[in-house]
Every structure is written in structure tokens, then in C-alpha cells.
Simulated scan of single mutants.
Amino acid sequence: PQLKNAEIDHPAKVYERIMVMIDTLYNKAELVHGDLSEFNILYHDHPYLIDMGQSVTRDHPRALQFLMRDIRNINRFFKKRGCAVKSEYEIFNTVTGLNVAAP
């Protein structure tokens, strides 16, 4: 099922796994999903990212905007389910190696 409809026994572990996937996608594949949310993740024992067709390379002019949106979407989903989430800026900075301050 889509993540939004899945029964998740350990949401904090799934959240952390998705954060690792975002980092791996950005730093190893040099891609940003661009539309990551609970609708584009399937879940059965662990998460599977789908709909990668709209992904962009890291050098795309809006890649960093898309990355931040992806992080916000995942944080929003897990926060609504009572999971402690990291600051979107902390995640963004860790993934990109930048030092963007929260407004």
C-alpha cells in the first residue's frame, strides 16, 4: 500500500529510513525526487520510493527547492502521526552540506 494507507509498527524507524533514502538519492544518485510524499512511497516491511520519473538532477535550477519540499512533506506526514521529526533545515543542511539558517 501507499505509505498513507499502511500500518506502520515503528514509524520513527521508517522516518529515519526515508531520510537515509533522501540522502542516498541526493548524494549517490545525484537526484532529487521532486514530488516525495506519502502518496509516492509504497510500504511493505520497508519503504519503496515510486514515481521517480519527475526526479531532477542536483544541478537543476530548482533542485534545492524540490529537496526542501520533499523533506517538508515527509516531516508533515510523520509529525501528524505523532513521530518526533528533525528540523527541516537540519536535514537539508546534512543532506546538502550547506548551512542554510531557518528564517
Rank of each mutant, 00 (worst) to 15 (best):
Lys80Gly: 11
Asp45His: 07
Asp9Tyr: 02
Asn27Met: 10
Gly82Leu: 11
Ala6His: 05
Glu30Asn: 13
Val85Asp: 00
Arg62Ser: 15
Val56Lys: 12
Arg58Asn: 14
Met19Ala: 12
Phe78Gly: 03
Lys86Leu: 08
His44Ile: 01
Asp59Cys: 09
Cys83Ser: 01
Pro11Ile: 02
Ala63Trp: 05
Asp45Met: 03
Tyr48Asn: 04
Val85Tyr: 01
Glu90Ile: 06
Leu3Gly: 01
Glu90Thr: 13
His60Met: 10
Tyr15Pro: 04
Glu38Cys: 04
Val14Trp: 02
Phe66Ser: 14
Met68Arg: 03
Thr94Ala: 15
Asn27Asp: 06
Pro61Asn: 13
Asp51Cys: 02
Thr57Ser: 10
His60Tyr: 15
His60Gln: 13
Asn5Arg: 11
Asp9Ala: 09
Phe92Asp: 01
Val32Glu: 02
Thr96Ala: 14
Phe92Val: 06
Ile8Pro: 00
Ile50Gly: 00
Phe92Leu: 14
Ile18Val: 15
Ser37Gln: 07
Leu49Trp: 05
Arg72Lys: 15
Cys83Val: 06
Gly97Trp: 03
Arg62Val: 10
Leu98Lys: 11
Ile18Ala: 00
Asn99Pro: 09
Asn99Val: 14
Asp35Leu: 08
Pro11His: 02
Pro1Arg: 07
Thr57Lys: 12
Pro1Tyr: 05
Asn75Met: 07
Ile22Met: 06
Thr96Cys: 09
Ile41Lys: 02
Pro103Leu: 07
Gln54Arg: 12
Tyr43Cys: 03
Asn27Phe: 06
Leu25Arg: 09
Asp9Val: 06
Glu90Tyr: 03
Pro47Glu: 00
Glu88Tyr: 01
Arg76Phe: 14
Pro103Ser: 10
Ser37Lys: 05
Gly82Thr: 05
Ile91Phe: 07
Tyr26Leu: 05
Pro103Trp: 08
Ala102Leu: 10
Pro1Leu: 08
Arg17Met: 12
